[in-house]
Simulated assay, not measured.
Amino acid sequence: MITKETTIEELVNKKPKSVEYMSKKGIICVKCGEPIWGTIYEVCKDKGFNDQEIEEIVKELNNL
């Protein structure tokens, strides 16, 4: 199960389709091959998403 505390590395390993999904959300460094460190929550916060939006992203990632 993916949670907001899942690291980006774990996410990509568990759900390869997440790369395209995250790219569409504006988190494009996953796709370009640059390493992203931290959790889904941290990365989304850095991109300006609020807690409710992050919860929706996590839900959608689990449904991929």
Score class of each variant (00 low, 15 high):
N13P: 02
D51I: 15
I54R: 12
K25N: 08
N13G: 09
P35N: 05
N50S: 12
G33S: 12
T6P: 10
L61E: 00
V30H: 09
I54C: 13
E42T: 12
D51P: 11
C29D: 08
M22V: 07
N50P: 07
L61W: 03
K59N: 10
G33Q: 13
E34K: 13
D46S: 14
E53P: 10
T3K: 10
Y21N: 03
I28G: 11
E9I: 14
L64M: 10
V58G: 08
T6E: 03
E9F: 11
E60F: 04
E56S: 14
N62S: 11
T39S: 13
P35T: 09
S18R: 00
W37M: 10
D46L: 13
T7L: 04
I2G: 00
I27Y: 01
V12W: 02
C32I: 10
E20A: 09
I8T: 10
P16N: 09
K14D: 04
G38N: 02
Y41V: 02
V58P: 06
V43E: 01
E20V: 15
S18Y: 01
V30T: 15
C32S: 01
I2M: 02
Q52I: 13
G48Q: 08
V12F: 04
V30W: 07
I28E: 11
T3E: 04
G33E: 11
E5H: 15
I54S: 12
E5W: 11
E42L: 10
I54D: 08
E20P: 00
K59C: 03
G26E: 03
L61V: 05
G38V: 06
E56C: 06
E5T: 14
C44K: 10
I8L: 13
V43R: 02
L64N: 05
V19C: 05
E34G: 08
T3H: 03
G33L: 10
L64G: 03
K45H: 10
L11H: 00
I27P: 04
K17G: 15
L61H: 01
P16I: 08
I36P: 05
I40Q: 01
L64P: 01
I57G: 03
K17V: 12
N50Q: 05
L11Q: 02
N50V: 09
Y21E: 06
E20K: 04
I27A: 01
K4A: 13
W37Y: 11
K24F: 09
C32Q: 02
E55Q: 14
I2S: 00
I40W: 00
M1W: 02
T6Y: 06
K4W: 02
G33F: 15
P16M: 11
C32N: 07
P35K: 14
I57Y: 01
G26I: 05
